[in-house]
Structures are given as C-alpha cells and as structure tokens.
Design a protein around this nucleic acid. Structure first.
Lengths: 114, 114
DNA sequence: TCCATATTTCAAGAATTCTTGTAATATCGA
DNA sequence: TCGATATTACAAGAATTCTTGAAATATGGA
C-alpha cells in the first residue's frame, strides 16, 4: 500500500459517521447492509449517508452489490488489512512499543505451546 | 481509546506532510528531532511545519521537550499503540481476515516451534 | 404503463483545514 | 544589552470537506 492510498483510507475513517458505518458493517458480515438500513440505524439522512458511503468505497474500504432496488455495502477486508499492515510496518517500522499485543489470535499459541 | 480520540489520531495521520513527519520521527527514536530539522529534511517551510506538528501533538501522537532554543518532537508510542488496538479490536472486532499477521514478532514463534 | 421505493447526483452554502506571509516570543552568545 | 537563531502565533485567503434540499436514476409491483 502506498502513502496516498493509506492517507485516503485514514481520512475515510477519520469521521464520526463513517467510523460508525464501518464498525456497523464489520458486525453485519459478508452480505453487508443496504444503504437505507445503515442510514436508519445510524440516524443519518439518505443523501448524507450516500456521501459518506461513497467516501469509504472510494478509499477501498467497502464494496457494493445491488439486490433489486437496494444497494448493499459490505466491508472489504483486504484494504483494511493493508492499512493496518501499513501502519505497523511501513509507518512504525514494527516498533515493539507500538505493535506488540496486536493480532490477538496468536496469544493462544503462546499460552498453549509453552 | 474513545471514538473522538481515535478520529483525531486518524485525521492527524491522514495528511502527507504529517504522515512523513510521523514516520521520520519513528526512525529518529527516543530523543526525536527539532522542528527546524524535521522541516529541512522534509522540505517544508517552518510555519507550515509548526502547524502540522501541533496537529500531531494535539492528537497525542507526539510529545515535545525544549533544549535551548530548539524544540524537539518525538513519537509518543502509547497513543499510536492505542490507535492500532482501537482499529483491530473496537473497530474490526478482531476480525481474523483483517487482524492476522499483525504483530510481526509472533511469526517467529510459529516458524520455530513447529 | 404508472406509481412507489431505494438510492444517487447535483448544486449551494457552511464549516473546516491548509498555506502563506508577517509579527511575536524565547534563547543563546558577544 | 544587542543581534542572530529557532520556533510559534496570528491573520487572510485558498482549498477541501460536509450538510442540506431538490432533482434524477433504477427497480419492482399493480
């Protein structure tokens, strides 16, 4: 991931409505949710919702598919993963004060194998 | 870390000059670098540098100390760590597609122990 | 085809962020 | 104290982002 892409992903998440949207869609799983339902749950009017959804999509954090007249938005994991990798490796050079204790599923390995 | 703090840290990093600054200061280590030297290395004029440094500091990502007439800026690891934890845990619910392979020091464990 | 629903596009104004130049503050050394 | 250096503060304009309302597009069902 290059700097420009990272910056656009960071900027996409750096906004209340969009952060809430992303988090909601993480919990919504593979299929995602239609625009209107996201708007309703987060109490955001449709036009504004559309504006923020397209910002997240432009940054590559969401993908869409149409089902009838609804357009579903779902998290696109690859870019989020790249962003976290960018932050830990490219940006922080894997600095241990910053990066240890991330990747929670590995702790099990350490506990079980000792 | 609450949402507002996360948003301000994300926004702080979502800008070319500031991202470059943060990265430079990670490589500069504990003592950091004086404002003027950061500006010179990144080819940014002093006033603008000061503006961006104070944005990073306000977000908690940098700390400062004065030495004579120079003001040193250095990375404040705690907030960056909190931000990464926020993104992996609060925001992504530790979703494995996103969070695995982070925390690079664990991979050694897997390779060596098998 | 006609109407209702779901969503986006467009345009205008408000708010925020960024840049630049100038002035102010702090420190050091003579 | 004076002059030079390092940095920040302030102010004004430029650029970008955000919000809102009105209109356009796409789809499904009667």
């Amino acid at each position: 991931m290059d700097d420009d892409l990272a910056i656009s992903a960071l900027a996409a998440l750096a906004q209340k409505d969009r952060l809430a949207t992303f988090r909601l869609l993480v919990s919504a799983g593979e299929q995602g949710l239609p625009s209107g339902q996201i708007a309703e749950r987060l109490n955001i009017q449709p036009t504004r919702m559309s504006f923020h959804l397209s910002a997240l999509e432009r940054a590559g954090l969401l993908r869409t598919h149409r089902d009838g007249r609804r357009i579903f938005y779902a998290v696109s994991y690859a870019v989020m993963k790249d962003l976290l990798e960018f932050l830990t490796k490219d940006c922080c050079s894997g600095h241990p004060e910053i990066c240890c204790d991330l990747g929670p599923q590995h702790t099990e390995t350490m506990a079980t194998r000792l």
